[in-house]
Design a binder for these strands. Structure first.
Lengths: 354, 354
DNA sequence: GTGAAAGCGCTAACAC
DNA sequence: GTGTTAGCGCTTTCAC
């Protein structure tokens, strides 16, 4: 412990060269005599020297660090997103500074953002769910940010796709249940101020509003709320014979409530969830669900951010200043790749009357 | 975008004072004339100035940043640990640099460690599960590290508690099942090279080896392996009437297999899991499980690390150099607080014959 | 109370 | 090829 780190100067002294030469070796510059290079490398090895990334970033104006802002990690969604982000960031050679928002208050977001900026991150991934107008202040702020910011959370209109994948997911679920011969399909949605919940609900409505009633319950993503939701819907709509839940946890709650109410799934009640959490295949019965490709999606966001960063860097070198247009361009390039990420219906027992 | 950040010099110039004075204002030093302070603060506000944390750490030798090394976040355990770490780090004013290890190879660990050191973290939380001898190289290395490192993963002998909480958990599960009148209690364990899995197994054995046979299956933490595990155990031990699973996911797999085999839970088969994931209460039937207080535990680790860091800092100021002994001391102080974190049996339907 | 000078660890630009 | 000088943004002496 408390063993002081080795500096470039000490290495230089020990190798009887200047600090500059050591630096050249570190950065694999060609203009070093092979012999000198070997000597220096030997000393580096021997002393266990590690260049100080902090000092480097200070002068290079590039920290090779990305900031990630997200919410509590106790839900599968945020967690998987983070997992994907880390994977890709790692690939591209970035370290990650993590900043969690705990109570969905704006000042928390502001704090997180400033914190990351203070740490001179090269870019920011904003993976906080869109809730109410919590994006508003940020959207205002983006133009003034010294670094690029990309939204990395769940897919929503911020992707500027023609239709939100969440909405498409809602449609897939509803269409599937109708196709399986269910007639009255209820929704157990997420909190309606969450953009993702809203979109899933819209998708479900797209399909059902013309054909049937639209029994609907607003949950809070927890299994408890799913359970409560089914009880309440069944009471209000005795003919309800299927439910689309906006996440798999709520679907799990629905399954439990169904067992307790003596409803057989899928015979008496069809159930479809959302997210395809790893456990879903092991629910009883196994849960049909909508896969939204969160991990792949967040990887793409990191790539996108990376490209913007690189583009900015290049532009600065060129003294050109059409940076923003270039960014726009790159961003669009990325978006068009989104085709393989179409939401996918994963059919299991919970929605298939045999 | 690409808007250059404001520096302290610009603020100084704008406020017609020296950079030094601005620095004094930033750090709330007393020796600044109230009037000057106000002027400077106004300029800071107006320019939206943010001190550069990187430059600061360079000179202060303190980055207020902790490094976290953990494995893939696709399991509940690591995720919750991270969640707890982040919460407490945030409380104590630290930012977090995240470094995930993907393939459990030693060089990955080495890379992660070096990466964090390069970033001049003030301390490191090693939240990687102990698997095989993957701690060995690290234990060797710790004495040479320039910063303190604390193990932040699941509870194991690294806590130097008399008995691992994991083992106590295993005992609780087995004792409970026997008390409920089950006679032949099988284990569906985690991979045996995981220290945590090993300890849970030992706890189970402590209770059962004398009274009954010890049917045992080695899973891989996944629900799929839990399912397979039950099928196999039942075949080998037709009289098996209870199962203790080393995590809740495997317990879920057991429940599914039981349903498929026509075994009623809890009448024909008692089931106890481990972790108390939020979903466990909504399994069918609701799952009895062992709560290991991962979040609280990881918070404690962060506090511990913080205290060591502070102690080192104080020592350096004092020119004293008994730092290591102090560390040892502090660390021990922390450990003795562990009493409220005793594993807890959470009884639900899956193990209670009515 | 305030400013000037020096330096944290490193690298870019120029000498030689 | 290599060393010297300067400086990233900030804080810590130590003058005044």
């Amino acid at each position: 412990m408390v063993k002081k780190s080795v500096t470039i100067k000490e290495v230089a002294q020990e190798a009887r060269v200047s600090a500059q030469t050591v630096s050249r070796v570190l950065n694999d510059r060609p203009d070093v005599a092979p012999k000198t290079r070997r000597t220096v490398q030997a000393v580096i090895e021997r002393l266990g020297y590690q260049p100080n990334a902090i000092a480097r970033s200070l002068i290079r104006r590039r920290s090779h660090t990305l900031g990630v802002v997200t919410t509590e990690l106790d839900q599968y969604g945020p967690m998987r997103t983070l997992s994907g982000i880390e994977r890709e960031a790692n690939n591209l050679g970035y370290s990650l500074i993590l900043s969690l928002i705990h109570h969905h208050e704006t000042d928390q977001g502001e704090r997180a953002l400033n914190d990351l900026l203070a740490h001179q991150v090269d870019g920011i991934l904003w993976a906080v769910a869109e809730i109410g107008d919590n994006y508003a202040w940020l959207l205002d702020k983006i133009p003034q940010l010294p670094v690029p910011l990309v939204f990395g959370g769940d897919p929503s209109h911020t992707e500027r796709m023609p239709v939100s994948p969440n909405r498409i997911g809602g449609r897939l679920a509803a269409e599937h249940l109708l196709a399986q011969g269910y007639h009255e399909v209820g929704l157990i949605g997420g909190p309606l101020d969450w953009e993702a919940a809203q979109q899933r609900r819209l998708g479900w409505q797209d399909v059902l509003s013309r054909t049937t009633q639209t029994p609907c319950f607003e949950g809070d993503w927890s299994a408890a709320s799913g359970k409560q939701g089914l009880r309440q819907l069944i009471e209000q709509y005795p003919n309800l014979d299927a439910v689309y839940a906006a996440n798999d946890q709520m679907a799990l709650g629905v399954l439990q409530a169904a067992h307790q109410l003596g409803l057989r799934v899928p015979e008496d009640l069809g159930v479809v969830g959302t997210d395809n959490i790893p456990e879903a295949a092991y629910f009883w019965p196994p849960l049909t669900t909508i896969q939204l490709h969160m991990i792949e999606r967040s990887k793409m966001r990191v790539q996108q951010l990376h490209q913007i960063i690189e583009a900015n860097e290049a532009d600065e070198a060129d003294e050109a200043d059409e940076a923003d247009e270039v960014n726009e361009q790159r961003a669009n390039d990325c978006k068009t790749e989104g085709i393989p990420l179409q939401p996918k219906l994963i059919i299991r027992k919970s929605s298939v009357r045999s």
